[in-house]
Nucleic acid binder design. Structure first.
Length: 193
DNA sequence: TCTAAGATGACCT
DNA sequence: GGTCATCTTAGAC
């Protein structure tokens, strides 16, 4: 299968959408990446920004599916999500890693000349930077910018970089792909020590 | 108004 | 494999 995904694809449970996004091609600002790793977030998930209900920042997450939710974290990084679920569900899929398949020169210009190919979009903040995304892209309609790629296998695993619900297996990756980010548990997560 | 925590990445050893 | 940089957001008072 191939061709752009329509809004109904995203308007489902993010836990269902996430694994199906693996291998899909996302295009924005002159760069295309093939998704290798994603993570599902829902309103009933303590680790989700939408857990406490809508706020000014998370307003996009509570809107219709297929839009881009970009937020700023750790004082220096952007992360990008695709809003999923029904309108008002407060659900999204975090784009964690991917392989740049188009516009590599542009991605490298944004990321730095000395960055190796495999690190161009391996990581949520790296991917957002390679795509040229920042908060001005928050709320952007991504329907038409995501197209299905070759079907791929997926593996679910524990989530990284967060404390709450760190063992919820809502992180999906393409097994064995070199563009998947390394597993790294949050330093303060229970069981980390 | 103040405080604590955070869906991370770069660099050094 | 470990340490540090850096600032926004949200919640408490």
């Amino acid at each position: 299968m191939s061709g752009p995904l329509d809004r109904s694809f995203f308007a489902r449970d993010p836990v269902v959408v996430a694994p199906e996004l693996l291998g899909c091609i996302v295009t924005a600002n002159g760069v295309s990446v093939r998704l290798t790793e994603v993570e599902a977030y829902r309103e009933d998930d303590p680790a989700s920004h939408s857990f406490r209900g809508p706020t000014k920042r998370t307003a996009v997450m509570f809107g219709p599916a297929g839009f881009l939710y970009v937020y700023f974290t750790y004082g220096m990084h952007y992360c990008a999500n695709l809003v999923c679920g029904e309108d008002g569900a407060g659900a999204a899929v975090l784009l964690r890693a991917g392989e740049v398949v188009e516009g590599e020169a542009l991605a490298r210009a944004r990321r730095g000349e000395r960055v190796p190919d495999r690190d161009l979009a391996r990581g949520p903040a790296r991917l957002a930077q390679a795509m040229g995304w920042d908060r001005s892209d928050d709320g952007r309609d991504m329907v038409g910018a995501v197209r299905a790629g070759a079907p791929t296998a997926s593996v679910a695993g524990p989530r990284t970089g967060i404390m709450k619900a760190a063992d919820t297996a809502w992180r999906f990756a393409i097994p064995g792909d070199r563009f998947v980010s390394p597993y790294k548990r949050h330093p303060k997560a229970p069981g980390a020590g």
